[in-house]
Nucleic acid binder design. Structure first.
Lengths: 112, 112
DNA sequence: CGTAGATTTCAATAGCTGTTCATATATAGG
DNA sequence: CCTATATATGAACAGCTATTGAAATCTACG
C-alpha cells in the first residue's frame, strides 16, 4: 500500500501506519481518553487526575506511561508530585476535531 | 468528571466520552486505519481496498461495517459493487492532524 | 535517619476483539 | 433461470490488554 496523498498537509512516510494506529489506539480507551481530557485544562498531578476520573493512582500511572511513551502527554516534576499535560497542539487539535465529528448532526438519509 | 472546556471549538456533552473513545479505537487498528487511508483519495470498492492493503474481502467488509456504523465512512452502490469514502471532513482532518504529530521531530530533552 | 506522601512497578487474571473460513445474500448478464 | 461476481454475515479461536492489589521507589521534610 502506498496510497494517499492526504488531502492537505504532510503525507505519511510509508511503513509508519503502525505508529499512527498506535496513537489512535491509545486514545481509544475510555480511561486513557479521560486522562488526556483531564489534563487538557493545564498541568495536572497523577492524584488529581485519578480523583477527577475516579480511578486508582496505579491505573492512571500505568496509562500515563503509555501516553508519555507515545508523546501524547509530557511530564514535569514540581516538588514531590508530577504534573502531566498534552504534549503538543496537534493532540488538542485531533481531539477537538473528533469532538466536532461526534457533535455533527446525523443526516436523514443514511442510518445504521 | 466534567472538566474541559476544550481549548476551542465545541465542548463534549457529558457522558459522550465513550462515543469519542469508540471513534479513536476504530482508527486504532492497523487494518482499519489502512482501509480508511485507502479510500481517502476517493470512493473505493471493497475489493480494491482489499487489494491495496493485501487483506481478504471478508475481513475488509467486517471492518467497513464497524467504520460505517461509527459514521467514519459512507457507502454508495454503483452497479454490483459498493464504494466507500470518508464520511465527512472531520475524519480527514483528524487523520491529517495525527500525521502531523507523527512527523513532529522529537525534542532533544525528553525521551522514552 | 525515618516517616509520610506521591508515583511507579510487578504479576496475575478476566474480558475483549481481530482474524479466519465457511456460508449466505445480492446484483448483473447471457 | 442460472452462473459468476461482489459483498456481507456467522461462529469460533487466539492473542492482546485493561484492571487490580501488593510491593517498591522516590522525594520532601522534620
Amino acid at each position: 500500500m502506498s496510497v494517499l496523498p492526504l488531502p492537505e498537509r504532510a503525507s505519511l512516510p510509508d511503513g509508519r501506519v503502525g505508529e499512527l494506529a498506535d496513537l489512535f489506539r491509545l486514545l481509544g480507551d475510555t480511561t486513557r481518553l479521560k486522562i488526556v481530557l483531564s489534563c487538557l485544562s493545564g498541568p495536572t498531578s497523577v492524584n488529581d487526575i485519578a480523583g477527577q476520573i475516579d480511578a486508582s493512582p496505579s491505573l492512571v500511572s500505568h496509562h500515563l506511561r503509555l501516553l508519555r511513551g507515545a508523546r501524547i502527554v509530557r511530564s514535569e516534576r514540581r516538588g514531590r508530585q508530577i504534573f502531566y499535560s498534552p504534549r503538543d497542539a496537534h493532540i488538542e487539535c485531533v481531539i477537538a476535531d473528533m469532538v466536532s465529528h461526534v457533535n455533527e448532526p446525523t443526516e436523514l438519509d443514511e442510518e445504521v
